Simulated scan of single mutants.
Amino acid sequence: MLDRSKIGHEFDSFSIDIEQGRLKFFAKAIGETNPVYSDELAARDAGYKTIPAPPTFPMVLDMEGPDFLPVLKLLGMDISRILHGSQEFEYTGTIYAGDTITVTSKLKDVFDKKGGALEFVVMENSYTNKNGELVAVAANTLVYRNP
């Protein structure tokens, strides 16, 4: 069983510069064809200050930290036993090209099902821009299969 005493643990925050080309590439990768995600003039005409990040882009930022999925080390999890269970986003603002975003991650919950055969690890990530404004919060659930 995973150590539930670690619930509430906050990982070291890190910051990432959001480059316009990266947003365009992500939009193309997810099949997003709305020109606001690839053309600055279209973005401005739509009321944005510049090119905004496409939906779900914050999940890419989670992988930019100094350690890949630091919760694995914290809880002693074997990566071969995890599965991505779910991802939810709440947008409170907009991530733009040119922003610097600070990512803060917290272990929100650990619970089990099927008599402990499966454990669910819930992470909460907050994304704050260079002005200190919270622009998004994500909840990510990992499913861990016990031996």
Rank of each mutant, 00 (worst) to 15 (best):
M1S: 15
L2D: 00
D3Y: 02
S5C: 15
G8P: 04
G8H: 14
H9K: 06
D12W: 11
D12M: 11
S13H: 14
S13R: 03
F14Q: 00
I16S: 03
I18W: 01
I18L: 04
I18Y: 02
E19R: 12
G21Y: 07
L23E: 06
L23K: 04
K24Q: 04
F25A: 05
F25I: 09
F25H: 12
A27L: 13
A29F: 12
A29P: 03
I30W: 15
G31E: 09
G31N: 12
P35R: 08
Y37T: 05
Y37E: 05
D39Y: 02
D39A: 03
L41I: 14
A42F: 13
A43C: 13
R44Q: 14
A46N: 15
G47I: 14
K49H: 09
K49Y: 08
K49N: 09
K49S: 07
T50G: 06
T50E: 14
I51G: 00
I51Y: 01
I51R: 01
P52K: 03
P52T: 04
A53F: 06
A53S: 12
P55C: 14
P55A: 02
T56M: 12
P58D: 04
M59F: 11
M59P: 01
V60W: 11
V60T: 02
V60S: 01
L61R: 00
L61S: 00
D62F: 01
M63Y: 11
M63N: 03
E64M: 11
E64Y: 15
E64I: 10
D67Q: 15
F68C: 08
F68Q: 11
L69F: 15
L69K: 12
L72E: 09
L72F: 15
L72P: 00
L74W: 08
L75I: 13
D78V: 04
D78Q: 13
I79E: 15
S80K: 04
R81S: 06
I82K: 03
L83H: 10
H84T: 10
G85Q: 05
G85N: 01
S86K: 05
F89R: 01
F89D: 01
F89W: 09
E90D: 07
E90A: 00
G93S: 11
T94Q: 03
T94C: 08
A97R: 01
G98V: 04
G98K: 14
I101K: 00
T102C: 10
T102D: 07
V103R: 00
S105Q: 10
L107C: 00
L107V: 12
D109L: 11
V110Q: 02
F111V: 13
F111M: 12
D112I: 12
K113E: 13
K114E: 14
G115S: 13
G116Q: 06
G116P: 03
G116D: 05
A117K: 05
A117M: 15
A117D: 14
L118G: 02
F120Q: 00
F120E: 02
V121H: 02
M123A: 06
Y127H: 03
N131F: 13
G132F: 12
E133N: 08
A136M: 06
A136F: 06
A138G: 04
A138N: 02
A139P: 02
A139G: 06
N140E: 13
L142H: 01
